[in-house]
């Protein structure tokens, strides 16, 4: 298992390198530059001097080699040139990652148990009113994007009813000020997990081992929770990673709507203003988080189902 994890970690670094290289070239090749919008009053000499200062007068491949050299020799990923001028990109990310992770993990921590609960309920009460109600909610939550949910929650819950603040306010308890954005981000994962679990659990409930469990004297709920649910969780764990990734993606817009000082907002802004360093660092962060999440899920398979051994030796 340890060998397997180490191999996967090495793979993560390879993927990160590929992503970094591709992103570097793509952004440099896109139209737009660091002086867009500010060069109206600059002479041609001034413009050329500024581009030379940041090595942007060199061929892209040379810029890339200089970039790699900076990372390898000084661990220098550059500074922001537009969004937070002359601030190191990692300082920028370090200040914002915690709140973005907070939103993401909290959304996931809420989504998973609620999704499992709804899915179990729907499976147990299959084709009943409860099942239909849950299915309706699932369709609704999957169809409506998180930013639409966010806007709706902000308007009705915060503005009309005044139950929660309209935007992020650091003077309030964090749980209060982030409740609505977390809720907005949770709807889609709840729906996804509910839908998958309902399908898997419905099948498991009709298995022979369930009959045996009932015969042994367990109630339907006991048999479901102790046996059927566990068997159904392996495929469901598979959707947790996409759910988490969709939460991280959804947070880009939700953070902007609620004015949350997280990473999502500046990722979008950095792309729009061609702040290459910040965009690259953000992409690497999101890639790393996604790959780490996939690795965690793969490891968890072995915990959920003893028959699955990741990286174990094959028996002769």
């Amino acid at each position: 298992m340890a060998k397997y994890i180490l191999k996967r970690i090495a793979g993560i670094f390879i993927v990160l390198f590929v992503v970094m290289t591709a992103a570097f070239f793509m952004m440099r090749l896109m139209p737009g530059g660091i002086l867009d919008g500010v060069e109206e009053n600059l002479s041609a000499d001034m413009r050329d001097l500024i581009y030379a200062k940041y090595d942007m007068d060199k061929p892209i491949w040379e810029q890339y080699l200089l970039f790699l050299k900076g990372i390898v020799t000084e661990w220098d990923w550059g500074v922001s040139l537009k969004l937070y001028v002359n601030v190191s990109v990692w300082d920028i990310l370090a200040e914002r990652i915690p709140i973005t992770l907070y939103l993401g993990f909290l959304s996931l921590l809420i989504s998973v148990p609620i999704g499992i609960a709804f899915g179990t309920l729907a499976a147990l009460k299959k084709n009943g009113i409860v099942d239909h109600a849950v299915s309706f909610l699932v369709v609704l939550f999957i169809s409506i994007p998180s930013f639409v949910m966010a806007t709706g929650l902000q308007y009705f819950v915060a503005y009309k009813w005044g139950w929660f603040p309209l935007i992020y306010d650091d003077s309030l308890p964090r749980i209060t000020t982030t409740f609505l954005p977390v809720l907005a981000l949770s709807f889609t994962p709840i729906a996804t997990i509910t839908r998958y679990l309902r399908a898997e659990l419905s099948e498991s409930l009709n298995s022979d081992y369930m009959l045996l469990a009932r015969t042994k004297g367990l109630t339907r709920v006991q048999a479901t929770l102790r046996h059927a649910l566990r068997n159904s969780l392996v495929p469901v764990v598979n959707v947790i990673v996409p759910a988490f990734i969709s939460i991280m993606g959804g947070s880009l817009v939700v953070e902007s709507i609620f004015g949350i000082p997280g990473l999502g907002g500046i990722t979008v802004r950095s792309i729009n203003v061609a702040d290459y360093s910040v965009t690259l660092a953000s992409l690497i962060y999101y890639t790393l988080i996604s790959l780490a999440a996939i690795l965690l899920v793969d490891i968890s398979y072995g915990l959920i189902d003893p028959r699955i051994r990741m990286g174990g030796r094959k028996d002769a």
């Binding site: 200040e95 914002r96 990652i97 915690p98 709140i99 907070y102 993990f105 000082p261």
Partner: peptide, 8 residues
């Protein structure tokens, strides 16, 4: 941990 940090 992620909740402890956040904007300065």
């Amino acid at each position: 941990f992620s909740g402890c940090g956040g904007p300065s």
